[in-house]
């Protein structure tokens, strides 16, 4: 997902920059203020409608796991400490649903898992007094990296662990 997001973002930013550049450098021409107002209103209406479509496309289905309810597959408890992760199992099979239940012993941490290429798959905030649940099915075996994605003190960057995904049965 990340490369697509980056490309869309940079293109949209470049488009905005291009409009500014045009307004500044294009040879002066007559601008009809009333016409500009009409187009402004049309733009606002179009952006408003586009927002509804975007929300529908990105919010259904709901991107987060239900926080309560049955856990279909394997359960992994992850606990954050300043400054290491403790997982009650560090090996899971590919192709089987895994439910992570993340909690913390001290301050807020961020439980994140990156694939063997280093690309982040998901993350969730881990807040004192709460348990955060993520459901994920790994499709490829390999060594995944568990990292901390909330600043938790001066060794925050050292809070890395591993999770091995074995070929499924």
């Amino acid at each position: 997902m990340q490369p697509v997001v980056l490309i869309i973002t940079v293109l949209a930013m470049a488009a905005i920059a291009a409009v500014f550049a045009w307004a500044i450098w294009a040879p002066p021409g007559a601008v009809d203020p009333e016409r500009a107002e009409r187009w402004r209103i049309r733009t606002i209406v179009a952006l408003t409608l586009a927002g509804v479509v975007l929300a529908a496309m990105t919010l259904v289905p709901w991107p987060h796991a239900p926080q309560a309810g049955p856990t279909p597959g394997i359960v992994v408890h992850a606990r954050g400490y300043q400054w290491y992760w403790e997982l009650d199992r560090d090996t899971v099979p590919a192709g089987t649903p895994v439910t992570f239940l993340a909690s913390t012993a001290d301050v807020t941490h961020g439980f994140g898992v990156a694939d063997p290429q280093g690309r982040l798959l998901f993350q969730v905030q881990v807040i004192p007094g709460y348990v955060s649940r993520v459901d994920w099915t790994f499709d490829r075996p390999g060594t995944y990296r568990v990292i901390c994605l909330e600043y938790c003190g001066i060794a925050h960057h050292e809070m890395m662990g591993q999770l091995t995904v074995q070929p499924g049965v």
Partner: peptide
């Protein structure tokens, strides 16, 4: 104005999941 773009995109829950922090 340009800064609005990456901000709005990161505010999409599904994108935020891999871009937050």
């Amino acid at each position: 104005s340009a800064g609005v773009v990456p901000a709005v995109i990161d505010a999409i829950v599904a994108v935020n999941r891999v871009m937050h922090n």
